[in-house]
């Protein structure tokens, strides 16, 4: 059994969270409350030093000679400070300015990002020649089948997501084919989620039985 107090704390907290499997209880609530407080404090500190100190402070006042100070970052800090006006109801409306900046910038950035990465790139990777050849120039049946399936699956999947036209007749049939492809995707996602949760559970059991109790070699 471990003599490390940190391992003991970790083990007791782990058992506390697992106690929820029996039912909601004070031990679980205690561990949950600790987690909420600690994680809020942890992320606050990490955010503060990473962004306010490293990016802002050392951006405006570079620690090394020869680096240009980025004075424009002060605008970001002022916008951020304006966000705190929300705490004063009489001038709380000013906090809409930084919020508008964030919303506008996010909309602009994401619009272009998704247009390129999720839109153009995916379409380009789907619109490939359906007849595929090996490196030697021979017909490649496996690659050809894969390309055809990807093309049909993507096209029919998109048809399924098109709700401006009723899913009837040929259009409805294509949408049904799209559902089958989407179901495989959801099945794969579900399978991987189960696997990842199981992996975490195995990790916690390993911690309890190996690191804490020392029962595993």
């Amino acid at each position: 059994m471990s003599l490390d107090i940190g391992v003991w704390i970790g083990a007791l907290l782990t058992l506390g969270i697992f106690s929820f499997l029996y039912r909601d209880n004070p031990f679980y609530k205690l561990c949950e409350s600790i987690f909420v407080g600690v994680s809020a404090g942890y992320w606050f500190c990490v955010f503060f030093f990473d962004n306010m100190v490293r990016k802002f402070y050392f951006g405006v006042f570079p620690s090394e000679a020869g680096i240009e100070p980025k004075y424009f970052l002060i605008v970001g800090a002022v916008l951020g400070a304006l966000m705190l006006t929300r705490l004063i109801p009489s001038i709380g409306w000013i906090s809409r300015w930084p919020l508008s900046f964030i919303v506008g910038a996010t909309a602009g950035l994401y619009m272009m990002l998704f247009f390129v990465s999720n839109g153009l790139n995916q379409v380009a990777d789907t619109m490939l020649p359906l007849y595929r050849e090996t490196a030697g120039g021979d017909f490649d049946p496996a690659e050809t089948l894969g390309t055809i399936l990807v093309f049909i699956g993507t096209f029919t999947g998109l048809i399924y997501f098109f709700f401006s036209k009723e899913h009837k007749g040929l259009f409805g049939g294509a949408a049904r084919v799209g559902i089958f492809f989407l179901m495989v995707t959801f099945g794969a996602a579900f399978g991987y989620t189960v696997m990842s949760r199981m992996s975490l559970l195995i990790g916690r059991m390993d911690f309890l039985f190996r690191d804490w109790l020392g029962l595993l070699g």
Partner: peptide, 9 residues
Amino acid sequence: VFFSIIAVF
């Protein structure tokens, strides 16, 4: 970077 700074606030 602006985002990150505003995010701290």
